[in-house]
Write a protein that binds this DNA or RNA. Structure first.
Lengths: 173, 173
DNA sequence: GCTGTCATGTAAGGCGTTACATGATTTG
DNA sequence: CAAATCATGTAACGCCTTACATGACAGC
């Protein structure tokens, strides 16, 4: 029962208005990509399953086989349920930190290079998020409001990684 | 080619001395669990594959079918290669933040509850890591040294999440 | 002798990635 | 009419989780 967050991301995006798989795909390429990346094939597959489970329905069809999906009442219930009851996520895998663990295998120059790369990465992410912050036109919808909150999380996270990488590089005697 | 970090975690742990699947499992239940959780079945399966690929070999056998694995030269090369060349990990999925995105679906009390839960979670993680920090006997090995660096990352991360959750709760009303 | 720990292995099923495959419609 | 975009769907393969399954050895 736990996990399956793609389902809930899709349900969440359908709260405001119906959308096609293609529309939803675009949303996942935007700000959502930072929080929950999803591929085209995954989205279409999951939409089919959601429809089979009657959490969404095809509300309209358009040119080129376009199918617009709308949330059902059951879908809305499921989304609320997940929002309220989903238990804390277990520790995420962190490939970057895993590398840090084994830094002792490398020589000094290589260690410095690894930490530099992490620093750069953090800086680039921060820049990207600041750009995102400026490029999105924030209206006063709920998604804007809470999307901004999520973005602030990302900004603080990047800042933390930046600070840590600087501190860590300092620690290398 | 990218991904497959469990392999490299296992190779990394075998750098210092040979170990059995069971030994390695214990390591994954300890500090490594915060960075790269792995289950028993996964570890045994991956060790078999690593042996088939000749990155490790069975260096000794013991009672109860115990098999001790040691790193081969090829394994050491592969580990170094991964450490130096593995490209930045793409954005991790973040179920907690995904919930934040859709907070608008809930009513005020429920929103507060979600953010409170995130705050608690961050506090608990921080306490757990501080406990870990005290309970591990840090020697002057590489793994201790860089393990401490990774732990510092975790502490800063928890602190950031704590601060963010407090800020976000403030934003609500 | 019983219990706990040591010790390894396999199978089913879900989720994710990449790649393949196809075709309609709009726009210049 | 050519190219870009819109639009959906399927298949193969890998990783991870959960559960099942088995048995040897040590200490009491």
């Amino acid at each position: 029962m736990w996990g399956m967050s793609l389902r809930h991301a899709l349900l969440g995006l359908l709260v405001e208005h119906p959308a096609s798989g293609y529309d939803l795909l675009k949303r996942f390429e935007g700000s959502l990509a930072n929080v929950w990346p999803a591929s085209q094939s995954q989205i279409y597959t999951e939409l089919t399953k959601l429809a089979a489970d009657e959490l969404i329905t095809v509300s309209d069809t358009g040119p080129r086989g376009r199918k617009e999906y709308a949330l059902t009442d059951a879908g809305r219930v499921e989304l609320r349920h997940w929002l309220v009851d989903s238990k804390p996520a277990r520790p995420a895998r962190n490939p970057a930190l895993l590398r840090v663990f084994f830094l002792g295998v490398l020589d000094r120059d290589q260690r410095v290079a690894v930490l530099d790369e992490m620093l750069d990465h953090a800086k680039r992410d921060q820049a990207a998020m600041e750009h995102l912050s400026r490029s999105i036109d924030w209206d006063d919808s709920d998604l804007s409001r809470y999307g901004r909150m999520a973005l602030e999380w990302g900004l603080r996270f990047s800042a933390m990684r930046r600070d840590w990488a600087e501190w860590a590089a300092d620690q290398l005697d």
